[in-house]
Simulated scan of single mutants.
Amino acid sequence: MMFKHFFYLLLGVSVISCNQTENKSEEKVTVSADSTRNNSTILAGNDLKVENAALTDIYATYIQLKDDLVKSDSKEAANVSAKLAGQLKDNNDYLKIVEKANDISKTDDLKKQRLYFSDLSDEMIKAVKASKVESGKAFVQYCPMAKNGEGAYWLASEKEIRNPYYGDEMLNCGDVKEEITKK
């Protein structure tokens, strides 16, 4: 009899804690939707600045693109990726970034955009890591479910996970793998 009461007590605690976790996730979604509308809100206090001013600007635009994919806004992702490619049109150091940004800009298919974003992110991570960070930080984040279970990385200005590969479907799926900061 005592075991039966203990079992129900544990079951009740489990249900309550799952509901609290679920409510926190819903609360985060609301915050994310509000904070991703204005890029300056996201970057405030953590602007990544590298010695290459062009890359600093490119990173800010990349973060806008990431946020549009988090919101599953394929039209705005296409617009921002076109802007990103335009920022780099005369820069031969970032040809692969231009290529992937152009790929994203040419489609409104969110699944294709997210696939191209994975390749773009790999190139952005290499570029930021190869640069001297003057201030701020970037977080290398990873989702093991992206690209049909292959996994994919992306950069973020905040430590909190906002998954660009799944948006609201799996907003918090992933973890921080590395922090890029001034050495």
Rank of each mutant, 00 (worst) to 15 (best):
M1R: 09
M1C: 05
F6A: 11
F7N: 02
Y8Q: 08
L9I: 05
L9P: 01
L10P: 03
L10T: 09
G12D: 10
S14G: 12
S14K: 05
V15S: 11
I16P: 01
C18Y: 12
E22F: 09
K24D: 13
K28W: 11
V29T: 07
V29Q: 04
T30G: 12
V31A: 09
S32P: 00
N39P: 06
I42V: 14
I42F: 08
L43I: 13
N46Q: 14
N46T: 12
D47V: 11
N52H: 06
A53I: 06
A53K: 12
A53L: 10
A54L: 15
Y59A: 00
A60G: 07
T61I: 14
T61E: 14
I63K: 04
K66D: 08
D67A: 00
D68V: 03
S72A: 15
S72E: 15
D73T: 02
S74P: 01
S74H: 13
K75W: 09
A77D: 01
A78P: 06
A78S: 15
N79L: 14
K83A: 09
A85D: 08
Q87H: 08
Q87A: 05
L88H: 08
L88I: 12
L88T: 09
K89F: 08
N92E: 15
D93S: 13
L95Y: 07
V98D: 07
E99V: 03
K100C: 03
A101N: 05
A101E: 07
A101C: 11
N102R: 06
D103W: 02
D103E: 11
S105T: 12
K106L: 13
D108E: 15
Q113E: 10
L115G: 00
L115F: 07
F117T: 08
F117N: 05
D119F: 13
D119A: 10
E123D: 15
E123I: 07
E123M: 04
E123S: 13
I125C: 04
I125F: 12
V128M: 05
K129Y: 11
K132Y: 09
G136M: 09
K137P: 02
A138G: 08
F139S: 01
Y142N: 03
C143L: 05
P144F: 05
P144W: 11
M145G: 00
K147I: 10
G149D: 13
E150P: 01
A152M: 02
A156C: 03
S157M: 05
E160W: 03
R162F: 04
R162W: 04
G167Q: 02
D168F: 00
E169R: 13
L171D: 01
L171G: 03
N172E: 14
D175F: 11
D175T: 12
V176F: 05
K177F: 10
T181K: 12
T181H: 05
K183I: 14
